[in-house]
Computed example of a mutant assay.
Amino acid sequence: MAPLRQKAAVVGENGTAVLTEVNVPKVGPGQVLVKVVAAAQNPSDWKMAKELKAIGAVLGLDYAGVVEEVGADVPAGLRYIGERVCGFVKGAEGPSGAFSEYLVGSAKYAVIPIPAGWSFEDAAQIGVAGLTAVLALWEGNTGLPTPLAPTTTPFPILVYGGSSAVGIYAIQFAKLAGLRVLATASSRNFDVLKDYGADEVFDYKDPEVSQKIRAATGGKLRHAVDTISEGSSGAIIAAAFGEDGGHIGQILPYSSPEENVTVKFVLGYRLLGEDFELPWPFKATPEYREHSEKIGKFLAQILALGKVKPMPKLILPKGLASVQEGFDYMTSGKVSAQKITYKIADTPGVSA
């Protein structure tokens, strides 16, 4: 039985993270109550805190934990008490977020079983990054093989921003699909990305990076995932394509940089099965809800192959009391090929 009150990191003045005590959210129809064991940080966490300034809202998207309670109207066999699950919720807006002892989330959307052999700390990073990588690859591009049916004739794909969390998962998924994976990163992360499956890595700071990628692929590059989607990333990718152009799956929206380049903006929040207005308006149609459920099952199948590795973690020492420290670390630009992670039991005043 869950307690009535819990420790949580909430939005404070000026979009800061403040550790306080709040009510444990009540589970509703189609939902589960999860006892959170570990949570992982995303750029959206501090950005939404700063932009929305919903003071008192519980922060955090990515979580891993154990199902404590199953709400009404959850299909039989979908979720069960004691199940190890991971996924994400829309934190920084209301009473339920990942940076807490307990959260309420959908039983069906943006939640999957934790893969065998993965710790809670590992699994906490799967939700946003894993699901967004799936969207950027297979919604943002057309005609790509999958890890469940890999191609035997590799063709190239570019992961721009390979050392980001989405990038590291996109590299692994594309490699498992049989593709020849090229990536961009800073030179210090070349070996890391090759360890995760990248065949070739290019320095994104190199003024000739587009030409080098185009030469390496013989002008045959047609597919890309842009995990940065800011600055000149789109133009760099477009210049790396051959004369026929190509497709870019982007995590932030921008206009096509060339007439023969199609861009598709993907957003993980759409997988939650809910309507929303921020950060961009979205209507959750029945068709997209069905698609969302399929995406979650697809990711679970990929992870069940046992061939995907979690990215390196930076576990901050005081659990939820370290969230503002994590925000400061991320906004200072120090995060590189690592996932800031919080173990809830490390929080002062919280027992395991």
Rank of each mutant, 00 (worst) to 15 (best):
K7Q: 10
A9P: 08
V10E: 06
G12L: 15
E13W: 12
N14Y: 13
T20D: 07
T20Y: 10
V22C: 07
V24Q: 04
P25V: 03
P25G: 04
P25Y: 05
V37W: 05
V37A: 06
V37Q: 04
A39V: 08
A39W: 07
P43V: 03
P43W: 02
K47L: 14
A49Y: 05
V58N: 10
A64T: 10
A64Q: 04
G65E: 01
V67C: 05
E68V: 10
V70R: 03
G71E: 01
A72T: 09
A72F: 05
D73N: 15
D73T: 04
I81V: 15
G82V: 10
V85F: 11
C86T: 13
G87D: 04
G91N: 08
G91S: 09
E93T: 15
G94E: 09
G94P: 02
P95G: 08
G97P: 08
L103N: 04
S106P: 00
K108N: 06
Y109H: 09
I112Y: 04
I112T: 01
I112D: 00
P115V: 09
A116L: 08
S119V: 00
Q125T: 13
I126S: 08
V128P: 00
A129P: 02
N141C: 14
N141D: 07
T142I: 03
P145G: 03
P145L: 09
T146W: 02
A149Q: 12
T151K: 13
T153W: 14
P154W: 15
F155W: 05
F155I: 05
P156S: 05
L158A: 08
V159E: 00
Y160T: 03
G161F: 15
A165D: 00
A165N: 06
A165E: 01
I168Q: 11
I168D: 02
F173P: 00
F173V: 03
G178D: 02
L179S: 08
R180M: 10
R180Q: 11
L182P: 04
A183F: 12
S186Y: 13
N189L: 13
N189W: 10
V192T: 13
V192N: 11
L193F: 13
K194A: 08
D195T: 07
D195K: 11
D195M: 13
G197P: 04
E200L: 09
V201S: 11
V201A: 10
F202A: 14
D203H: 08
E208F: 15
A216N: 03
T217P: 00
D226M: 02
S229C: 07
A235V: 09
I237M: 11
F241Y: 12
D244Q: 14
I248C: 09
I248M: 14
I251N: 11
L252K: 12
S256R: 15
P257K: 11
E259A: 14
N260F: 06
V261G: 06
T262N: 11
G268E: 10
L271M: 05
L272K: 12
L272Q: 14
E274R: 14
D275Y: 12
F282G: 00
P286A: 13
Y288T: 08
R289P: 01
E293Q: 06
K297L: 15
F298H: 01
Q301D: 15
L305V: 07
G306N: 07
K307W: 07
V308Q: 01
I315S: 00
L316V: 02
P317N: 09
G319L: 11
L320V: 01
A321Q: 03
G326D: 01
G326E: 01
F327I: 08
M330G: 03
Y342N: 06
K343V: 10
I344S: 02
I344T: 02
D346I: 04
A352S: 12
